[in-house]
Amino acid sequence: AGGRSTFMVEMTELATILEAADENSLVVLDEVGRGTSTTDGYAIAQAATEHLHDEVGAYTLFATHHHELTDVAAELPRARNYHFSAERRPDGVDFEHDLREGPAEASYGVEVANTAGVPADVVQRAEAILADEADGRTTLTADDATPTSEIPASTDGGEASAVSRSSSDASTSDGGELPADILAELQSVDLAETTPLEALNLLSRLKSRVE
């Protein structure tokens, strides 16, 4: 009604929290950064976490599906990761209510969609897309697409920044072949461990070497 996007509303609320909170505050944050791109959302979420830890010192509960954000706790002496346990079963996921230390192993987004009644063909398609990403491929459309090999930046169901190329094309924009060392570096990257920021840094580094 006010002409503001969901993300703008979220950022306005975050600004109010960060400006007003002090060491005696209880700060509760839920999915900060969800209203924009995965890369931008993660960057904002990490920066807000570090600010609350280093500058404000407020007691904070921060729920997030940015799995990379859980790595930040290792660098912040007063930060801890916790998750609610869940167990995959043949007929779905059993969501338990036990709070356990450490980061969650998965998001279970597709399973939740299935439980919520999303049509079976949509759920099956989502599962197929996730399987393609796990194999290092991205299906471009529902129909047959040109196969690609890629380095995804995220495997948690969010958007993935990627380095990709056609499986039959290893040439540069000027028609030359990509150097063997660059191809070798691309093939050596651990798909499951590449974060959005790492993918962007890799792109920048390899692009400068090709140029």
Rank of each mutant, 00 (worst) to 15 (best):
T16G: 14
E111P: 09
T138Y: 14
Q187N: 13
A142E: 15
A21F: 10
S161L: 13
E185K: 11
E13L: 03
D181G: 02
E31A: 12
L18Y: 13
E55L: 08
V118P: 05
T38Q: 05
G117V: 07
G117S: 09
Y82V: 14
E50V: 09
T138D: 11
D40A: 02
S168A: 06
A180M: 02
G175H: 14
S149Y: 12
N114Y: 06
I151E: 00
I17P: 03
T141W: 15
L140F: 11
E198P: 01
E185Y: 11
E150Q: 11
R78V: 06
D181M: 01
G102A: 12
I182T: 01
R34M: 09
H66Q: 05
T141E: 15
A192I: 04
E105T: 12
D91T: 08
E68S: 05
I182W: 04
G175A: 04
L183S: 08
R137L: 00
D40W: 10
R137N: 09
L202P: 04
R100G: 03
G158A: 14
A21L: 07
A153N: 06
D174Y: 11
R125A: 14
E159C: 02
H53Q: 02
S107E: 13
G102C: 08
S37Q: 10
E133M: 13
T60I: 13
R125P: 05
L183W: 09
D143P: 00
L61G: 03
A43D: 06
E19M: 14
E159G: 10
A47G: 03
M11G: 06
T16C: 13
T172L: 10
L183D: 11
L18N: 08
T12I: 07
S171R: 08
